[in-house]
């Protein structure tokens, strides 16, 4: 591999990290918030797909992609609130409900999305952060969608708010010890309902990115499991919003590795390189989960931890 080839691959990975990471980031942040309240919502794949469909449909019908993003958030909010409400009923398992919502969300999206596969809806515009270089490859890699920046800002805000605000404290307490929260007079079902609903909203917006920006069209195979992977990223990021962003960027960059290596002529072993994101996650999870501190980062009320 020559220096020029290395440059192409590195540029592709940076570009890939920027292009592909946003849905992972939004779903992971939403799931992080939900899990901080002591509940797991495995149904974010459903939110992601339904968000993608609703965003595309609304953008097509109104001509405004940002209205589509709002509508996708609304659809995610409704799904998340339903999950939160059902899980507050006695003897309901949040993981089982999450799996049901995964099927429910994707099923709804496929049912109502039939008539939107063919038409082309207006998509979100990108900001050309690399345009000043005059180099088309760099300009292409540094095409940044506003939602990507919103995601990063949101992660910083969540990280600050969880540590420094009264709301953040209540949320963390509900997640770590429901008994203490009850003793403090906190309505834990309400806190979890709100956290799950806002988490669902973020996952829905992640879906809007898929259908309105990259790859930028609606079809039934659009997500191919990204919502599920993002839920796993939260464990990998150990319930820290900032680390969720890094995990999403890493996953996006690793996903660009397979195609870009083939494009510079390293075409042997593409199945292996295409699997890079999963192999990478596996290794980092083994490495990080072995430490004792990993277990202590998990919210104490999570059903997988208890």
């Amino acid at each position: 591999m020559t220096g020029a080839d290395l440059y192409i691959v590195l540029l592709a990975m940076i570009g890939g990290a920027i292009r592909v990471s946003t849905p992972f980031m939004f779903v992971a942040l939403g799931e992080c918030l939900t899990e901080k309240s002591g509940r797991i919502n495995l149904g974010h794949e459903g939110n992601l797909v339904l968000g993608a469909m609703v965003a595309y449909a609304v953008s097509f019908m109104t001509g405004s992609p940002w209205l589509g993003v709002l509508a996708a958030g609304g659809a995610g909010l409704v799904l998340g609130a339903m999950h939160g409400w059902i899980c507050a009923l006695p003897r309901v398992n949040d993981i089982a409900v999450g799996i049901a919502f995964m099927s429910f969300g994707t099923g709804l999206a496929f049912f109502f999305g039939k008539s939107f596969i063919q038409p082309s809806a207006p998509g979100l515009e990108a900001i050309g952060l690399g345009d000043w270089t005059g180099n088309s490859a760099i300009a292409q890699a540094l095409q940044v969608n506003p939602l990507f920046l919103v995601g990063i800002a949101l992660a910083v805000f969540l990280s600050w708010a969880l540590a420094n605000t009264r709301w953040g404290l209540i949320l963390r307490m509900t997640g770590d010890s429901a008994a203490s929260a009850r003793a403090m007079g906190v309505n834990i079902d309400l806190v979890r309902l709100l956290a799950t609903a806002v988490g669902g909203l973020l996952a829905g917006i992640g879906g809007a990115f898929l259908s309105l920006y990259y790859p930028g069209s609606w079809n039934e195979g659009l997500s191919s499991g990204q919502g599920l992977m993002a839920v796993a990223l939260v464990i990998f990021a150990r319930w820290d919003p900032i680390r969720c962003v890094w995990a999403a960027l890493l996953f996006g960059a690793a996903g660009a590795l397979g195609p870009s290596l083939q494009s510079i002529g390293i075409s042997q072993g593409y199945y292996f390189f295409n699997a890079a994101p999963y192999i990478l996650t596996l290794f980092i999870m083994i490495a990080s989960a072995r430490s004792k501190s990993a277990a202590s980062d998990a919210p104490g009320e999570l059903s997988i931890v208890k």
């Binding site: 292409q140 790859p215 195979g221």
Partner: peptide
């Protein structure tokens, strides 16, 4: 560029870009 899957929209877009 082989994607290795019959339907994988994000990787297909990456491949086309590459």
């Amino acid at each position: 560029i082989f994607t290795g899957e019959w339907s994988m929209p994000v990787r297909e877009a990456e491949a086309a870009n590459a």
